[in-house]
């Protein structure tokens, strides 16, 4: 008897297909990949003269928040909107009827999110360095932190996005359910404003969710260590960030595996 291909092998094939499909959807490519750059341009220009402590420019502060919220937009937001749309048109049910396992579908999505994150980060770096004098991270340990934040952040955001895809009842309504959550989280998590300037209750709400920790982690990569004094805990708290992202990843994977819906009814 012939062997059916492994889940990992099919996951890679799904990933290639997902990237191919995504790259042909011009509107979503432009929106997903250029939106952070556009936000960077707007906020960077508006707050150009704003002086932050420790000689940090607003753009330098902002790029940390943009990369962190890029992880949430690209993973959580896009999956929680596009998966219900795929479900609406019967694409998921058809996949369910094949020997392809759910894990391959999830791996494919994770690959798509990672590829689109890499492109997005490259664009943000290029744009930030060229037009807003953003300084790149220096030193191996900063890059190491950056790398695990991106990997763990992408995985976490993908898993929660897949898990959350059961919440919107239809693809058409998905955006209305998902987008406000992301925008509110961005305001609460210190993406657009300096986190410690926010009211305490907002800070406490934000601390439950991953975006606050991703943003804080990214600050540890892009801002000088002297900035730690400005943080709520007067520390980068990267260990805690790691733990909280792992907890959310486990929650996301658990619900993705247990509750994923292939069929609209």
């Amino acid at each position: 008897m012939n062997k059916i291909p492994s889940a990992l092998n099919l996951g890679m094939r799904r990933g290639v297909l997902e990237v191919k499909q995504f790259s042909r959807q011009r509107e979503s490519v432009v929106f997903t990949l250029l939106f952070p750059v556009i936000l960077m341009a707007i906020f960077g220009s508006v707050f150009k003269s704003q002086q932050l402590p420790e000689g940090v420019t607003f753009s330098q502060y902002f790029i940390a928040g943009m990369i962190a919220s890029g992880l949430v937009n690209t993973g959580f937001q896009s999956l929680a909107i596009t998966i219900p749309m795929e479900r609406d048109v019967g694409g998921l049910k058809r996949l369910r009827g094949t020997p392809m396992p759910a894990s391959s579908y999830f791996i494919g999505k994770a690959i798509l999110i990672s590829v689109s994150m890499i492109v997005q980060i490259a664009l943000l770096f290029g744009f930030g360095v060229l037009f807003f004098s953003v300084n790149m991270p220096t030193g191996a340990s900063k890059w190491l932190t950056f790398t695990w934040l991106i990997l763990l952040g992408s995985a976490c955001s993908t898993a929660i996005g897949i898990a959350f895809s059961v919440v919107p009842k239809s693809g058409r309504g998905a955006s209305a359910v998902v987008s406000p959550i992301v925008i509110i989280l961005q305001f609460f998590s210190g993406v657009f404003f300096v986190f410690t300037d926010l009211p305490a209750w907002m800070q406490q709400v934000a601390a439950i969710f991953p975006l606050k920790w991703l943003t804080q982690g990214m600050r540890s990569v892009f801002l000088p260590d002297a900035w730690q004094k400005q943080e709520v805990a007067q520390s980068w708290e990267n260990g805690r960030t790691f733990t909280i992202l792992i907890i959310w990843l486990v929650i996301g994977v658990f619900f993705s595996v247990r509750k994923f819906k292939w069929d609209r009814d």
Binding site: L17, K20, Q21, R24, Q25, R94, T98, P99
Partner: peptide, 19 residues
């Protein structure tokens, strides 16, 4: 392995328009 041996043509699927 069971799904490997069956084929299903559903009433409608309108996905993957960009492939």
């Amino acid at each position: 392995q069971w799904r490997d041996r069956i084929g299903i043509v559903l009433q409608s699927a309108a996905d993957a328009g960009d492939l």
